[in-house]
Nucleic acid binder design. Structure first.
Lengths: 126, 126
DNA sequence: TTGCTGTATCGATGGATGTCGATACAGTCG
DNA sequence: CGACTGTATCGACATCCATCGATACAGCAA
């Protein structure tokens, strides 16, 4: 249950509408729906902190037991948020004995980062 | 009403928790709330397409009249989504005579992109 | 002024979402 | 086996959100 079927594509450079900066060409509806799902997973403060906790944890992965402490919400809520992140294709998970480990899928983050990349030359916020 | 008070900071390299990749260090709660608000603005397919339409429009800005056509939703809904994007600090807007123009604020997109940037060396989604 | 067009706001509504307590499931230890 | 811990699922609930039609506001043209 680690890798969902991500419609990710040309790692080798084949330009797809999903990965080029959105300042270059308008997003298609399909791509927009797919990307919006991933951004929605990032649209909650708890999930954002969970993701950064996992990503910055040593070894690049974290046990759920490391993730429930830093938050004021209940354990089922943490489990729910982890499920959202997993179903969005942002993290993978695996059970090892008693504990369940989560790790970030860098390709997914990179896909979103590439989309947001901009020349930053036009009149920006500052 | 173009520039909201973005707590953006060191463009010159001063490391702030908002801008360093989340794989480096855990996000603080305040930063997470702030960033989640921006990601939430990107979590809707219509808004994502609106943003890319604006960004990829010639001159880097687009009239609302250019934005209502490509969608199946009503004009008030488009107006609502544009407001969400504006209040999230992702776009600026200005009225010029009859028409209202919107443009992307690249610094905001760059801030999010920097956060998502990862070494992309660990076992990724593929 | 009146009329027309472009855009924003209002109020309502159905559906999605975050949260919880209770509980079920998975694995380890006696 | 039973007891215990770690994690996920269930069901409920309050709130938020995308959407709409109706309407108000802003600017231009007669």
């Amino acid at each position: 249950m680690s890798n969902l079927e991500l419609p990710v594509l040309g790692q080798d450079g084949t330009a797809v509408e999903c990965c080029s900066p959105m300042v270059r060409e308008p997003l298609g509806q399909e791509a927009a729906v797919d990307l919006a799902r991933m951004f929605k997973a990032l649209s909650d403060p708890v999930r954002l902190r969970l993701l950064s906790l996992i990503a910055s944890h040593e070894g690049g992965e974290a046990c759920v037991c490391d993730l429930t402490g830093p938050f004021d919400v209940s354990q089922p809520t943490i489990s729910h948020h982890l499920k959202v992140l997993r179903e969005a294709g942002l993290v993978g998970s695996e059970r090892r004995g008693t504990w369940v480990y989560y790790w970030v899928l860098p390709a997914a983050l990179a896909r979103l980062a590439a989309l947001l990349e901009a020349p930053a030359t036009a009149g920006g916020a500052g």
